[in-house]
Simulated scan of single mutants.
Amino acid sequence: MKVVIVEDELAASENLAFLLKNLEGSIEILAVLDSVKASIAYFSKNNEAELVFMDIHLADGLSFEIFDSIKIEAPIIFTTAYDQYSLQAFKVNSIDYLLKPIDEDELASSLEQYKGQFKGKGLYGDQVTGLLNLMNTKKTAYKSMYLVPHRDELIPLKTENMAYLYIDTGIVKAVTNDNQTYIMEQNLEDLESDLDPSEFFRLNRQFIVRRDVISGIKQYFNGKLIVNVIPPSPEKIVVSRAKSPEFKNWMNQ
């Protein structure tokens, strides 16, 4: 299978290439493209790709801009960090997606889906238009407040007052800007979906952090990052090498 990767983060493209080779040794990576401009130039002259993996946010714009200039005949699997609402939109448009950081089992499932369903189907104008419209439709129902138990009552906790949420021995806790801790009834996955992704980020399996409370980011071994927050977290917050590019992009927005 001949594959093209469109991804502007070197670590992310190398990780995807490694996973692909690990799953199917016969896969040939024809090119790794890091921008809209480079992609237009490449696909204008080459149509050998049988499958394209494409990040949405590239260094010089959204990858959807590529389709304003050229038509890519190969099916496309998007790699994305968008929330669940947007991911459902991809499925509606019969376009597959992989949520970053890419999981090997999910990648294997996408490859099987490609073989059984998408082979020979390109991404056409009406699909791109529908996808763009859905991506431009903002989710307005993000949570602004939760009722949380405190002693013998329920008190309103505004999300703007949350510094971070984390799992402590199986219990989800919210730490506020003034360093108060409350037990949450929701699990971390539901909280991740409910909170505005422009303000909150899932750093790892244990922590969701609000942008405003990040006080520093340190380089760690093997490409990992350590995130410092105020108030200080009860334990070290480590971002994996695979998720670091996504986190950096989010911080740069």
Score class of each variant (00 low, 15 high):
residue 16 L to P: 01
residue 214 I to G: 00
residue 52 V to R: 12
residue 93 N to H: 11
residue 25 G to W: 08
residue 137 T to N: 09
residue 26 S to V: 04
residue 221 F to G: 06
residue 148 V to S: 05
residue 162 M to L: 14
residue 243 K to F: 14
residue 136 N to D: 15
residue 169 T to M: 10
residue 201 F to D: 00
residue 210 R to I: 07
residue 44 S to C: 13
residue 67 F to V: 04
residue 14 E to S: 11
residue 70 I to Q: 04
residue 250 W to Q: 01
residue 59 A to Q: 06
residue 12 A to D: 09
residue 1 M to Q: 03
residue 160 E to R: 10
residue 59 A to W: 03
residue 166 Y to C: 05
residue 54 M to P: 02
residue 5 I to R: 08
residue 18 F to S: 14
residue 78 F to M: 10
residue 182 Y to A: 06
residue 94 S to R: 12
residue 127 Q to W: 02
residue 232 P to H: 05
residue 27 I to V: 14
residue 64 F to Q: 02
residue 228 N to E: 15
residue 196 D to H: 12
residue 117 Q to W: 12
residue 80 T to N: 09
residue 6 V to S: 01
residue 178 D to T: 14
residue 134 L to N: 09
residue 71 K to A: 08
residue 226 I to H: 01
residue 240 S to P: 01
residue 102 I to M: 06
residue 223 G to M: 02
residue 29 I to A: 00
residue 63 S to K: 10
residue 87 L to N: 12
residue 61 G to V: 01
residue 231 P to T: 05
residue 217 I to H: 09
residue 148 V to H: 02
residue 164 Y to S: 04
residue 219 Q to F: 06
residue 55 D to E: 09
residue 150 H to M: 11
residue 148 V to D: 05
residue 88 Q to T: 09
residue 63 S to W: 03
residue 136 N to W: 08
residue 210 R to N: 14
residue 186 Q to G: 02
residue 142 Y to Q: 02
residue 14 E to P: 07
residue 62 L to M: 15
residue 110 S to Q: 15
residue 13 S to H: 07
residue 95 I to R: 00
residue 50 E to H: 04
residue 178 D to P: 10
residue 95 I to G: 05
residue 33 L to V: 09
residue 52 V to K: 11
residue 237 I to Y: 03
residue 42 Y to D: 11
residue 183 I to D: 10
residue 130 G to K: 11
residue 88 Q to R: 13
residue 121 K to Q: 15
residue 176 T to Q: 07
residue 61 G to C: 04
residue 162 M to V: 15
residue 59 A to R: 01
residue 36 V to M: 00
residue 82 Y to F: 14
residue 188 L to Y: 03
residue 105 D to Q: 13
residue 19 L to P: 05
residue 39 S to P: 13
residue 154 L to V: 05
residue 116 G to C: 12
residue 5 I to E: 02
residue 71 K to H: 11
residue 244 S to L: 03
residue 6 V to G: 05
residue 187 N to W: 06
residue 135 M to E: 07
residue 78 F to N: 08
residue 119 K to V: 14
residue 88 Q to K: 15
residue 13 S to A: 15
residue 240 S to F: 00
residue 1 M to P: 03
residue 78 F to V: 11
residue 199 E to K: 14
residue 10 L to V: 13
residue 9 E to H: 15
residue 148 V to L: 05
residue 233 S to Q: 00
residue 161 N to T: 05
residue 181 T to F: 00
residue 81 A to W: 04
residue 153 E to H: 13
residue 120 G to S: 13
